[in-house]
């Protein structure tokens, strides 16, 4: 007859270490993510484990709960808890003209390519609160291409999309953004693009004239069109390798020949099924061109 583990004495002074069972925790997390997917339709099942685990525990601690299963009960029965968790799970850290050297390279190497097109379609996948969308709109305007461009800015999270549409960003970050803008090769005075209003910096609404904000889920939704440029920076890092590969398939299908794919500065196509279908334009920037 099997002896119950609970009958065994627990080493003194180390109760927590004794109690922690990584395999059991993994089961709990998988059950929670399965429940979220089946009940709410958000699919976090193939997210990078260490990161999702960390964020789940942050929520558990903030709510004063004891374990993943306790969070599961709350999330499945209280849509408000799901909303909170959704914000936790979709990282919304971004900045205007983030990684300025990327914008310099984009101006030098991608803009000349885009000039040859009568109409330019750009997909910003995982646009979060929109700072990088406004940055791209500004860049296109300064290069005289904005009027024949359309930017499709998508995110899984409706709340951040609303903020992106509003175009009001924290005033206290304008100094940082101004520095970024200058280092990104900006051609005007950055302050011309916003006015201090409603306790924030309200960006020129004409910058979103050709922007379509819409909800799109990279994990569960399909390609919805073909684009000359797809930007997806620091989004795929939260996915596991299998899911990354799947999303790269989606991007590949959404790009014509010579279409441009932009990833975050520490992301790579290495070991992806589509690795050989792209060439990197101007390394070290992660700007790739589809060549087959």
């Amino acid at each position: 007859m099997a002896v119950q583990v609970a009958d065994q004495p627990v080493a003194e002074g180390e109760p927590e270490q004794q109690a922690f069972k990584p395999d059991l925790e993994r089961i709990e997390i998988e059950l929670l993510l399965e429940g979220i997917f089946r009940h709410y339709g958000f699919d976090f099942r193939a997210y990078a484990y260490a990161s999702i685990r960390r964020r789940l525990w942050k929520r558990i601690e903030e709510e004063g709960l004891g374990n993943i299963s306790a969070l599961q009960e709350r999330v499945l029965h209280e849509p408000e808890m799901m909303e909170k968790l959704l914000l936790d799970l979709s990282i919304n850290v971004t900045a205007m003209f983030r990684d300025p050297s990327f914008y310099v390279t984009f101006r030098e190497h991608v803009i000349p390519l885009l000039r040859t097109y009568p109409f330019i379609r750009i997909w910003h996948a995982g646009c979060s609160t929109g700072e990088e969308v406004y940055s791209m709109a500004i860049l296109l305007r300064e290069e005289g291409l904005y009027d024949r461009s359309r930017i499709y800015a998508t995110d899984i999270n409706e709340v951040v999309l609303q903020r992106a549409k509003a175009g009001i960003f924290p005033l206290e970050r304008m100094q940082e953004y101004t520095d970024n803008y200058i280092r990104a090769g900006g051609k005007q005075s950055f302050s011309e693009y916003y006015t201090a209003k409603y306790g924030g910096a309200l960006f020129d609404q004409s910058l979103t004239k050709n922007v379509v904000f819409s909800q799109h889920n990279l994990v569960t939704d399909r390609s919805f069109s073909e684009f000359n440029v797809i930007l997806c920076r620091n989004v795929l890092i939260y996915f596991d390798k299998t899911l990354q590969s799947k999303v790269h398939g989606l991007f590949y299908d959404s790009l014509p020949m010579f279409g441009v794919l932009v990833l975050g500065s520490k992301e790579t196509l290495r070991f992806m099924a589509h690795e050989d279908c792209y060439e990197q334009i101007a390394p070290p920037e992660k700007i790739f061109r589809k060549v087959k």
């Binding site: 990078a48 484990y49 260490a50 990161s51 960390r54 964020r55 990282i91 850290v93 890092i237 520490k266």
Partner: peptide, 28 residues
């Protein structure tokens, strides 16, 4: 973050003013 055999990056908020945070990597 350490995910069994491989390393994952994250741009989550700085932890105690640090990014990268040693606490985050150690914990993982």
């Amino acid at each position: 973050l350490i995910d069994s055999a491989y390393l994952s990056l994250s741009v989550e908020e700085p932890v105690r003013f640090s990014r990268p945070s040693i606490d985050v990597t150690f914990a993982s």
